[in-house]
Design a protein around this nucleic acid. Structure first.
Lengths: 247, 247
DNA sequence: TAGAAACCCTGCCGTTGCGGCAAGGTCAAG
DNA sequence: CTTGACCTTGCCGCAACGGCAGGGTTTCTA
């Protein structure tokens, strides 16, 4: 048989067969005077074995091992390992599909695939035009991905999410967008913000202090997001939290 | 933030982030005078989005598409496609695992992962030292892989698999290993073999004639497996089948 | 008997999402 | 001043082939 014929017989492509020769999985067969490979029925039997094994999901290296060991002993071992691997993959896929399903179930404006707990929180909070509030949402989304905060934090934030008074605070912060860094409204707003956050939120935050386990460079980058006066407010709020953490 | 800091923040490696820049998934950020990349919180939010999407199983191209389209509309579409893909993969893995389970359930000497129907047939036939019988087994295994014969053929072969008279025929074929191609025992054995195969087997074979849909080169390769006198027997048997097919 | 279709050959590049490694430059602390 | 921990670019490797280039052979067909 020539390569195309044996390929059709065992259900492989000629490319695959040549590949197997190339990587040493199968020895090169005898050549005709014109250079064509000629295969015997034995080769077909071998190739069929290879096909069955690869279809089960074995890699070519493993197939080579199984073919080398005449005893079927090694095969059982390899198959067990393979099954474990497939089980892991299957669980993995199911995991992803379930998260996908949860994500697809809540399409109204949900531009972000966040955890269910955070999605709940966002659902409670009314959509607002406040840039500061939008930034907060982004930060929560970020921490959600990083796995920093737990669901506890979101739950603790729940009660104030829908509070109109909180929205008013965001608007006061927005108003500082073009204010100088010594604007007189800063201290009062910072105090109001600190007071607005219930202790439960603070307790739910893991780590050492008010800024959690966040590196200094991250804090710096965060402050850079705000206008000068707003950054000053945020800085004061964070300091207050750190003090609260030391208590 | 520098690259290591943002990587730790969103749970990626620096290599991955640089890779995203490299393939154009994310624009290169501003550089410090020393050449270091500096990231903002915005970048972190973006990277977090990328991480969530890739963790769901999207490819980088798809992530790029989703990030490009500001509307979430395209996202829903991509997610649907992704879910279908994952479903397919999951079914695939389950398929393989079930075949694997069937294979692992029957370990006694089963060196070959064949279809259940063929495994049944092999279980019926006693293990024999006959080389001819062994070759037949290999051929059946081969055809089993190729998906040529169906379970019908195996079922039709069942009744004669355990027949001691069939074994005797194999032994007569073995005895021709060193015989000349004009050995007088040839015609009688060929007739006996043809007579031994029930019509049901023939009826179960798909395709046009006695040799099924097998190409001439395959037949040639098959005959090359036998000693001259044995090949002559096999040739006569096949011819008889072809004649039977024309009837 | 030519021409075209259908085979065959070797060899190299592309795929996916990074990890590893090499060969440097930079910056903080001891 | 020297570690050591960062950062930079860039190229190779991975699994199992598919595609293509560039060329020879065989076989069918007009």
């Amino acid at each position: 048989m020539r390569i195309g014929e044996i390929a059709a017989l065992v259900g492989l492509t000629t490319r695959a067969i040549r590949h197997y020769h190339h990587v040493g999985l199968l020895p090169e067969p005898v050549r005709l005077p014109n250079g064509y490979r000629t295969y015997t029925v034995r080769d077909a039997v071998l190739l069929a074995r290879v096909r069955r094994l690869t279809e089960l999901g074995l890699g070519l290296d493993e197939v080579r091992d199984v073919l080398a060991d005449d005893a079927g002993r090694d095969l059982a071992e390899v198959l067990e390992e393979l099954d474990a691997d497939l089980a892991r993959q299957e669980a993995d896929i199911r995991e992803r599909r379930s998260r996908l399903a949860a994500l697809r179930a809540a399409p109204p404006g949900a531009t972000e695939p966040v955890s269910p707990a955070l999605a709940d929180l966002f659902a409670k909070a009314p959509a607002t035009g406040s840039p500061s509030a939008a930034l907060d949402r982004e930060l929560l989304t970020l921490l959600d991905t990083a796995g920093e905060g737990g669901a506890d934090v979101y739950a603790a934030l729940g009660p104030i999410a829908a509070d109109p008074a909180v929205l008013a605070l965001y608007e006061r912060l927005d108003e500082l967008a073009d204010a100088p860094p010594d604007d007189p409204r800063i201290p009062g707003l910072a105090d109001a913000l600190v007071a607005a956050v219930p202790d439960a939120v603070f307790d739910a935050i893991p780590g050492d202090g008010g800024t959690g386990a966040v590196a200094p460079a991250v804090v710096e980058a965060l402050l850079a997001e705000y206008a000068p006066a707003q950054a000053e407010v945020v800085r004061r709020v964070m300091e207050a939290f750190v003090r609260r953490g030391r208590r």
